[in-house]
Simulated assay, not measured.
Amino acid sequence: MDKTQMSQRLFAVFFCFASYLFLAGCQGSSDDSQLPESYETYSSDGISISYPQHWSFSYDDSPSLYSSRGISFSVSELSGVSVLVESDQETTTKDILDGFLSRLNIDRDPMLKELERESVEISGNEGEVLRWVDTLVDRSDRELTVVKVYDQPMDVYAVFNLTDDDIETVKPHMPKFVERIILK
């Protein structure tokens, strides 16, 4: 792989991780003792989202790259959490996850190993998680989790795109984040 291809690949991976990020295989209830005392709230155009204060708001775009509307929060340089709103067509968690697989070539890239896909439940919402190891630069664990939060009046998904240490540090926040996505 030449430098240009590697740079393009890193940019694509970074963009997707920073933009639409998403859920570790978290099941069960949250442990409030691991959550920060303060959450911030982002509200705009019919949606309110509470998120841990150490995450930073990135953008609210309509349309976004992957849906009618995307609202994104940065967790770290390569990890992000997004809310995808699809008001133009009916979608499923499988549709969203398959779209990421296709766009990122996760299932066809020889640098990505140990691909696993399984069902998860977060705060009573069903979803799916993809786990893999990226060996492009160094060994890096990755997880992409998509959870359907609403299906009426529009499809709304929480997407956790996480890498390495962020997988464990974000996990306790996933249930609260999903619960605090409110349509107005």
Rank of each mutant, 00 (worst) to 15 (best):
V147W: 01
Y66H: 09
Q152I: 05
D60R: 10
S79E: 05
F17K: 11
I106R: 09
Q27F: 08
D134F: 02
V120I: 15
S19C: 15
S74R: 10
Y66K: 12
K148D: 00
E114L: 11
F15I: 06
K184Q: 06
V83L: 06
S123T: 06
L144R: 06
I181L: 04
Y42F: 10
F177D: 02
M154G: 02
D32H: 12
L162C: 08
Q5A: 15
F11N: 07
D2Y: 02
I181E: 03
C16T: 13
M154C: 11
V129K: 07
E118H: 11
C16Y: 03
V159R: 04
F177I: 14
E90F: 07
V13R: 10
S38T: 11
D45T: 09
F57G: 03
L183W: 00
R117D: 02
S87H: 04
F11M: 09
T92P: 01
T91F: 02
P63I: 10
D45W: 02
L144N: 07
D61M: 14
I167K: 05
V137M: 11
S119T: 13
F14Y: 12
P110Q: 14
I96T: 14
N125R: 14
S102Y: 10
V137G: 02
F160D: 01
G25S: 13
T92F: 05
L183R: 01
E168Q: 11
D31K: 11
F11E: 07
I181F: 03
E77S: 14
L97M: 09
V13Q: 08
V129Q: 08
F17P: 00
D88L: 08
E179H: 03
E128R: 07
I122F: 00
S29V: 13
D95W: 04
S33D: 09
F17S: 15
E128P: 00
R139Q: 13
L65F: 11
N125S: 15
E168P: 01
S19D: 11
F160K: 01
E90R: 13
G70K: 09
Y39P: 00
E116P: 00
S67F: 12
Y42E: 00
L21G: 15
V170N: 04
D2Q: 04
V149R: 14
A158S: 03
L104M: 15
L65Y: 06
F11G: 04
F57Y: 06
K113A: 15
L65K: 05
I182G: 01
S79G: 11
H54P: 00
T4Q: 09
D60W: 08
E37D: 12
S33G: 07
S82W: 02
V147L: 05
D98F: 02
C26L: 07
L21M: 05
S30T: 12
P63F: 08
L162D: 02
D32Q: 13
R131V: 08
V156H: 06
I49F: 06
D60Q: 09
G70N: 09
S44H: 12
V170S: 06
Y157S: 03
L35W: 01
E179K: 13
R180P: 00
S38Y: 01
E168W: 04
S48F: 01
L144G: 08
Y59D: 03
S43T: 14
S119I: 08
F73S: 03
Q53S: 14
K184E: 10
Y66G: 11
E121D: 07
Y39H: 06
L35H: 04
Q5W: 12
